[in-house]
Amino acid sequence: MRRWIVLAAFLVVAGCLLLGAARMRPFGAPRLALMDRYFNAFSQGEAATNNVVTAIVFDYRGYDTLGEATVLFTAVVGVALILRRIRR
């Protein structure tokens, strides 16, 4: 019984997610891309770099990268905490 409920819920979720994916704008043809067109056009002038992705990662969205570095640091601290040697 419980298994069937879970299965039904899973199927509902699957159907809705697939519906969402199918209703997206067609693959390879973004409708709105103001931000990205701006990045492609102006990152060379503003961030003085050829690699637009790097310009976004470290300049336009550098704060996200700081958060990402924090995530990595947090995970390393967490692993060190979990796998520490206990003297008791």
Binding site: I56, T65, E68, I82
Partner: peptide
């Protein structure tokens, strides 16, 4: 479009971080 690539880079590193932590829990 470059933005999703930058976002994906972030998400890949986040994924590695969570994986490492979860495996540490599993080992303990």
């Amino acid at each position: 479009l470059p933005t999703p690539q930058a976002l994906t880079l972030t998400s890949i590193v986040i994924g590695l971080a969570t994986t490492a932590l979860m495996l540490a829990f599993a080992v303990v």
